[in-house]
Design a protein around this nucleic acid. Structure first.
Length: 422
RNA sequence: GUGGAUGUGGCCUAAUGGCUAGGGCACCUGACUGUGGUCCAGGCGGUUGUGGGUUCGAGUCCCAUCAUCCACCCCA
């Protein structure tokens, strides 16, 4: 081993895994564009205050998972722990409120969180993110959910379903939270320590506690969907109506919550058959309060994010076949100094004709052919003294075993082009 | 942040506390400038994760530390 090793929780994405990344990036990007989302690329770091405010001071992310530092100019900087805050910042800063609504944006890229690494979980990882900004109507929620769904369908994920809930809005949520806290206080002796703490810091979070002792308490807890105001109720009903209309399976899950204040109304996850049981593969929801919170005009929005490492992990586990990355079809084998000079001319001729080509750089004929076999493409072109003398090149089609053809040197490019039908 | 398991060349791995840590894959060289994965010969590559300790002697036992994996936590 060398002197230096990767920082904890980071990974090298080696050439042999690139086809998965390329495939996932291509599929998600294609779907997003198809659905009218436009790509936006944002800085990987932002002002720390943006995330502190946008994600929420009391969240785990802000409290202990951010990569924050001071730059040489004394600015407080944080490597983005999620996309939404940056998207909203860009929306406001670039005056996107003057654009026709909805504004539909997507992003892909690295995300940073200081967490304990685990299978499929890294400190630098990657997300796909999509947002619909500027529309209150539940059609926007549906649009985001459909994109999430279809991305996984396009990636051939099995057993897809939605988990769905509404978290209400500033009008109806406080009353519900009060009710929940009162209920929990009556059962204070039956719940875990963490939940007791949550009651004061972030009450909604008690609902997704995994502790065994908390389960019966959760099961009988008041459900927020029974306490929605009229606007939230109408919104939720309409969204469910669309899903019913489309026959998309969803489960009402009153335990599905986001602990952040700016989340409103719709909260959802897509579940799929993962490694073993069903598991969430992406999550999202509506955040009508965030843009105003970050200094913009009051603007409704809804979005979701998906972790690419998790997608790739499931794809590899289920042995989903992904297309190979293209390799250059031509590999030139050369013998002798004179032939070598001609060979480099041939090499650039192929490339000028937009046909991928490589040249053997070392070794005997045998070992060059062996290299052609393992690293090269379909055709091995042999250029030695014999060929040189006759102005020919010997072409072996590696997909055809020993079949070889002698082609005049100046027709080689045209001959190969014809073979590959370009 | 909590609990558990595991660390031997790039990868896989052998070695009752006892010879210079052995083998396979891969890589390189040769056989071999003239026809592809075989075979043959040779080579490069290790302070056994790191640091201590026990012992005449440690890859092996003990402690610490680091890393990885797993389960929590959190989430994507």
């Amino acid at each position: 081993m060398g002197k230096y090793t990767r920082p904890k929780g980071t990974q090298d994405l080696l050439p042999e895994t690139q086809k998965y990344w390329e495939y996932v990036r291509a599929t998600t990007g294609e779907k997003a564009l198809q659905y009218g989302f436009e790509r936006i690329d944002l800085p990987i770091f932002e002002e720390t205050a943006l995330f502190a405010r946008g994600v929420g001071e009391a969240t785990d992310i802000v409290e202990k998972e951010m990569y924050s530092f001071e730059d040489k100019g004394g600015r407080n900087i944080t490597l983005r722990p999620e996309f939404t805050a940056g998207v909203v910042r860009a929306y406001i800063e670039n005056g996107m409120r003057v654009q026709p609504k909805p504004v539909k944006l997507y992003s892909v890229g690295p995300i940073f969180r200081y967490e304990r690494p685990q299978a499929g979980r890294y400190r630098q990882f990657h997300q796909f993110n999509a947002e619909v900004v500027g529309v209150q109507a539940p059609l926007a929620d549906l649009e985001v959910m459909l994109l999430a769904w279809d991305i996984y369908a396009a990636l051939d994920f099995q057993g897809l379903s939605f988990q769905l809930n509404s978290t209400g809005c500033p009008k109806c949520r406080p009353a519900y939270v009060q009710k929940l806290v009162t209920y929990y206080q009556q059962h204070e002796t039956e719940i875990c320590d963490t939940c007791r703490r949550r009651l004061t810091t972030n009450p909604l979070r008690v609902l997704d506690c995994k502790e065994a002792q908390c389960q019966p308490v959760i099961a009988n807890a008041p459900k927020i969907t029974a306490h929605l105001c009229e606007a939230c109720e109408t919104h939720f009903t309409a969204l469910r109506g669309y899903l019913d209309e489309l026959g998309k399976p969803y489960t009402l899950n009153h335990r599905l919550v986001r602990g952040l204040d700016y989340y409103t109304k719709t909260v959802f996850e897509v579940w799929a058959e993962g490694i073993g049981a069903q598991a969430a593969v992406c999550g999202g929801g509506r955040y009508d309060g965030l843009i105003e919170l970050l200094g913009g005009q009051p603007t409704p929005a809804v979005g979701f994010a998906a972790g690419l490492e998790r997608i790739i992990m499931v794809m590899r586990h289920q042995k989903v076949s992904v297309p190979e990355l293209p390799t250059p079809p031509v590999f030139i084998v050369q013998l002798g100094d004179a032939a070598r000079r001609l060979a480099v001319r041939l090499l650039v001729d192929f490339r000028a004709a937009d046909i991928g080509a490589q040249i053997a750089m070392r070794g005997s004929l045998r070992s060059q052919l062996r290299t052609a076999d393992r690293k090269g493409g379909r055709f091995a072109l042999i250029l030695g003294e014999r060929e040189l003398a006759r102005g020919e090149v010997t072409v072996k089609d590696t997909t055809q075993g020993w079949v070889q053809t002698v082609v005049p040197l100046d027709e080689a490019v045209a001959w190969v082009r014809e073979q590959i039908g370009k």
